[in-house]
Design a protein around this nucleic acid. Structure first.
Lengths: 220, 220
DNA sequence: TAGATTGTTAATCGATTAACAATC
DNA sequence: TAGATTGTTAATCGATTAACAATC
């Protein structure tokens, strides 16, 4: 069906954004939109939107624009949001708990099936209807249950150790909040990294930069 | 001092990564590294590393390579990590609490000075040594205290509302975890977005894609 | 039909990689 | 000095924007 041309990550990373804006339009009862109007709404160019969408197919209609609910469904399908990938989460610290409680796995193609920690104080406690399991039983768990993806909310050292166990158990997809870069060690894994500290440093850079350039202006 | 050429965001987003790898090298007692060796370690190209660093100055030495502690200090300075930007956090839900407890503000150029919520059950409680303040007193707080940046850990609607108050109070820098895009509404703000749901959808896409292409291979 | 807007090709712009002279 | 490795320019590659024929 889909043409076998490789989609660039630049395009892929814009898909969730299209998804969000189209959902909002749909919820507001808007059934039709042109690339120009959508571009304005999203702060993008109409050309880019048409190019992006045409990577996956001709979803629009000349002279009319795009059917919002139809396009929304198409993008949901492209993203694979109707999947039910079984995910387990490692590390029930502050970050892990936030991910468990805050992220809507169901509507994003995932199902959170188990959570693990190595802290005896946490093992056995319940979070969001799940009992925290002992990470020492991880390999065994992976043998007995399907695991499509693992979510790493661990400090770097444990992440490497646990990542090795998961890889050894056949897990190849990771949502990685740790500073251990799995893709560097294993070349057949799919990883999506979230580095909060990096993000904050980027903000720090931008703030520092803008401060300096405004100072330069004043100094002149 | 620094040449006034504009640094591209592609380069800026790699800086925290250089920071991380150099810190690790430094901690491991490695005092010297060539662009080639660092490239191998980071999964990048030596050419890119030299290009990136040369945006900011000639930190290396021909025939020798780079002095690790010196380069680390240079990058810290470029990022502005010695700053003490005063940040306040809005929304002490799961995500907000994780950010408060998990992120190391000090070492990333920030100081978390106050946290706010609108939930009466949370207002007045203490988190990490800070008392949760009532968001209704936000504008007043901003008048009485310096606020360099705001961290939005709110649902979309409250984020827009609260963002407006913050903007009205003169705040121009945002670390935004919400789905409300401030940069679209105000053109003089600095925002760094973290969209966990988008990140998870990207992973879903990649997993779905790899599944389909491996199926295609099998089908042939 | 006339107007609007897509799908798609061509042109531009930016980022990455390659190459090599400069130099430690 | 000879070898190594940078800083920097040139070449390539990819992504974005512009343009326009196709068509609803």
């Amino acid at each position: 069906m889909s043409d076998n041309k490789k989609i660039s990550m630049s395009v892929v990373r814009r898909l969730p954004r299209y998804y969000r804006f189209l959902l909002e339009l749909k919820n507001n009862g808007i059934y039709r939109i042109s690339s120009k109007a959508l571009a304005e709404k999203m702060g993008a160019s109409a050309s880019q939107i048409r190019q992006d969408l045409n990577c996956f197919g001709g979803f629009g209609q000349q002279g009319y624009g795009y059917d919002v609910p139809k396009l929304f469904d198409e993008i949901s399908a492209i993203l694979g949001l109707d999947s039910r990938y079984k995910a387990i989460l490692l590390g029930v610290g502050n970050l892990g708990r936030a991910v468990i409680n805050h992220v809507d796995f169901r509507s994003r193609g995932f199902e959170l099936t188990a959570v693990f920690d190595n802290n005896p104080a946490l093992i056995g406690s319940r979070i969001n209807g799940m009992t925290v399991l002992d990470v020492s039983g991880l390999a065994q768990y992976c043998k007995a249950n399907p695991v499509d993806a693992a979510i790493l909310c661990l400090p770097k050292e444990s992440a490497e150790q646990t990542g090795d166990i998961l890889y050894g158990s056949g897990v190849r997809c990771f949502w990685n909040f740790s500073h251990f870069d799995l893709a560097l060690k294993y070349d057949d894994v799919i990883t999506e990294n979230v580095h909060l500290n990096d993000s904050l440093m980027t903000l720090c850079y931008c703030m520092t930069q803008s401060k300096q350039s405004s100072q330069t202006q004043t100094e002149q």
